[in-house]
C-alpha cells in the first residue's frame, strides 16, 4: 500500500478479505454499495449482504434486531446519514442494548470536497462519542483501515468506523501495530510539543512536524485512531513530557478529538493546548486541499498552532 487510497475503498478490500476468513458477520447497506466498494463482497457472498435501499433508519434498527439473532452485523452508509438521519437508532436501539453492530461511516469531514455540506460529516464524532457503549474509530490510511475493521469485528459491542471519501497517503507499513484504544506514536522523539491527530490529519501532522523541525521546534506525533475509548495514558504522557499539545481533526472542534483530548487534560494534567479543526462552521464545495487551507486545517495551520502553543509554555 504505497499509493494514496480512500479509506472507504480500503474498507471494501478489507471486507472482502475478512469475508473469506470468517463466516459470522452479515453486511447491510443502503444503496451505497458501489460508493463504498462492497460490490466484490456482494458478488462473492450474495447471501451475506442485504441492501435496504435509501432508508438509513430502517438499516440501523433492523441491524439492531438482526444482531440479536446473528452477529456481528456490519451496517454501512455515509457519516451524515449514520450519525444524524439514524441518530436515535444508534443511541436507543444499538448502544442502549449494547448490540454487536458495526456502523461504517464514509464521507467524514471537509475532505469529502465537492459534494458539499450535505455530504460532509463534520459533527458525527461528537454525536456518536456521547453514546454510552459506543467505540469510535478513525483510521489514518488504508493499512490501518484493514486493521481497524478486523479489530472492531473482534470487539463485542457497538462501534463506529469513520472513513474518507477521497484518497489519503499511506502513513503506515504492513507491520503497523494496531490495538483498539491505543494511540500510535507515529513520531516518538521531540520534547517541545505533541501533535495529536486523527484520520486524514495524521499525515498532515507528520508533515507539520517536519516543517517545525526546520524551525527548531521538536514535535512528536500521536495518532489517536480510537477516539473512544481514548488513550488517556498516551495523552497524559504527551502532556507530561512535552508540556504542550495541538490536536488536529477534520471535524468541528466542538465534540471531536480536540474536545476528547481536552477532557482528559483538564481533569488530570492541564497544559497549553490548541485545537485544529472546523471552527464551528459548515464547509462548502471545493478541492479538499483548497478547503483545508481556507478553513484552517492545512499543514501550515498546524505549524502556526504549534508555534503559538510552545510560546505559551511556562
Amino acid at each position: 500500500m504505497t499509493k494514496p487510497m480512500a479509506t472507504r475503498e480500503a474498507f471494501g478490500e478489507a471486507l472482502l478479505a475478512l469475508g473469506a476468513e470468517r463466516e459470522d458477520f452479515v453486511v447491510l447497506g443502503a444503496d451505497l454499495g458501489k460508493a463504498m466498494f462492497t460490490s466484490a463482497f456482494q458478488r462473492k457472498y450474495p447471501h451475506r449482504h442485504i441492501n435496504f435501499g435509501i432508508a438509513e433508519q430502517n438499516l440501523m434498527t433492523a441491524a439492531a434486531g438482526l444482531a440479536t439473532v446473528r452477529e456481528p452485523v456490519v451496517a454501512y452508509t455515509y457519516a451524515v446519514f449514520a450519525a444524524m438521519r439514524a441518530c436515535e437508532q444508534l443511541r436507543t436501539m444499538i448502544c442502549y442494548p449494547n448490540l454487536n453492530v458495526k456502523v461504517i461511516a464514509s464521507h467524514g469531514g471537509l475532505h469529502v470536497g465537492g459534494d458539499g455540506v450535505t455530504h460532509q460529516g463534520t459533527e458525527d464524532i461528537g454525536i456518536v462519542r456521547s453514546f454510552p457503549n459506543m467505540t469510535v474509530v478513525q483510521p489514518a490510511d488504508a493499512q490501518t483501515t484493514h486493521l481497524a475493521l478486523r479489530a472492531i469485528l473482534d470487539h463485542p459491542g457497538p462501534a463506529y468506523l469513520r472513513l474518507t471519501r477521497n484518497p489519503v497517503p499511506p502513513v503506515y507499513d504492513a507491520n503497523c501495530p494496531f490495538e483498539l484504544g491505543k494511540g500510535i506514536w507515529v513520531k516518538e522523539d521531540g520534547d517541545d510539543v505533541t501533535l495529536v491527530a486523527t484520520g486524514v490529519m495524521v499525515a498532515k501532522a507528520l508533515a507539520a512536524a517536519e516543517k517545525l523541525a526546520a524551525l527548531g521546534i521538536k514535535a512528536r506525533v500521536l495518532d489517536i485512531h480510537t477516539i473512544k475509548p481514548i488513550d488517556k495514558e498516551a495523552i497524559l504522557l504527551a502532556a507530561k513530557e512535552t508540556g504542550a499539545i495541538v490536536t488536529a481533526e477534520d471535524h468541528n472542534i466542538i465534540g471531536g478529538l480536540g474536545s476528547a483530548v481536552a477532557e482528559v487534560l483538564v481533569e488530570e494534567s492541564p497544559v497549553p493546548m490548541v485545537r485544529i479543526g472546523l471552527r464551528d462552521v459548515f464547509g462548502e464545495s471545493g478541492d479538499p486541499e483548497q478547503l483545508f487551507a481556507a478553513y484552517g486545517l492545512s499543514t501550515d495551520h498546524i505549524v502556526q498552532a504549534a508555534q503559538g502553543v510552545v510560546a505559551k509554555k511556562a
Partner: peptide
C-alpha cells in the same frame, strides 16, 4: 424494523 431484522436473521 427491529422485528424485520430478527426475521431476516
Amino acid at each position: 424494523s427491529a422485528g424485520l431484522g430478527m426475521a431476516l436473521g
